[in-house]
């Protein structure tokens, strides 16, 4: 019961879904199962949200380090949840869109959620710089290739690229940095991307088979016993 049934479920569900692609009367099955997944995931929210609250309440009651901030999380969570579930401030009735203009939910989204998220995202501009400083060093042949490719592309995206190599005559124009950058994007880069994708395709196929056949079962509690 504890291990046998789950293995059978995985096997049956997986096999049926693979074959359903080839059988028109079952063509909606994949779509419906995706919807099933979404529904189960909403149930899982109870576990997740419960866990989030438990972690922060424990922190609060036990006065662990930084417990003050847990108040912020808990208050923010309940406040936003109330705004969302009861559609506070929504123009119109229960059928109004959750994200209607003027609702509290949308106002918080626009003025708290968006600035936080997009600033977090914008930190990438800084990390891109610090990572290239550290990583693009000519330590060995592979690292040197990485460095040169990155440098050419970077140069090609500024007026500097044209400035430095603009004098090269037309019959050697591929050596002009902007053209070289494009050529790199179009051929070696494309080749690399394709090789990676073909590998991934096969990796997923083999991984899925291992899961369906029950050879890989760590998620159910290992292979022993």
């Amino acid at each position: 019961m504890k291990r046998g049934v789950p293995l059978i479920i995985t096997f049956v569900v997986g096999t049926v879904l693979i074959f359903s692609v080839f059988i028109p009367p079952m063509e909606n099955l994949g779509e419906n199962f995706t919807l099933f997944f979404d529904i189960i995931a909403v149930f899982a929210f109870f576990l997740g949200g419960g866990n989030l609250l438990r972690v922060h309440l424990t922190k609060l009651t036990r006065r662990k380090r930084d417990w003050e901030y847990s108040i912020v999380t808990i208050v923010g969570f309940f406040f936003m949840l109330a705004c969302g579930l009861f559609k506070i401030g929504n123009p119109g009735d229960i059928s109004a869109s959750l994200t209607a203009e003027g609702s509290w939910f949308q106002t918080i989204y626009d003025n708290v959620f968006v600035p936080l998220g997009s600033t977090m995202y914008a930190l990438l501009a800084f990390f891109v710089a610090s990572a290239s400083y550290r990583a693009f060093r000519a330590k060995n042949r592979e690292a040197t290739i990485l460095l040169i490719a990155a440098f050419i592309i970077l140069l090609g995206r500024t007026p500097l690229g044209t400035f430095v190599t603009g004098w090269i005559p037309d019959s050697f124009s591929v050596l002009q940095i902007p053209n070289l950058a494009i050529w790199i994007m179009n051929s070696p880069n494309l080749a690399g991307q394709r090789a990676i994708m073909i590998g991934i395709g096969l990796g997923v196929v083999s991984m899925s088979l291992r899961l369906i056949l029950g050879i890989e079962r760590t998620y159910l509690g290992g292979e022993d016993k």
Binding site: F45, G48, G49, L52, Y69, S70, V72, T73, I74, V75, G76, F77, F78, F79, M80, L81, C83, G84, L85, L98, F105, I108, Y109, V112, F113, L116, G117, M120
Partner: peptide, 14 residues
Amino acid sequence: HLFVGISAAFWMSM
């Protein structure tokens, strides 16, 4: 901490 609380509730409501 504010971001975590608000965004968790955001996706639950959605």
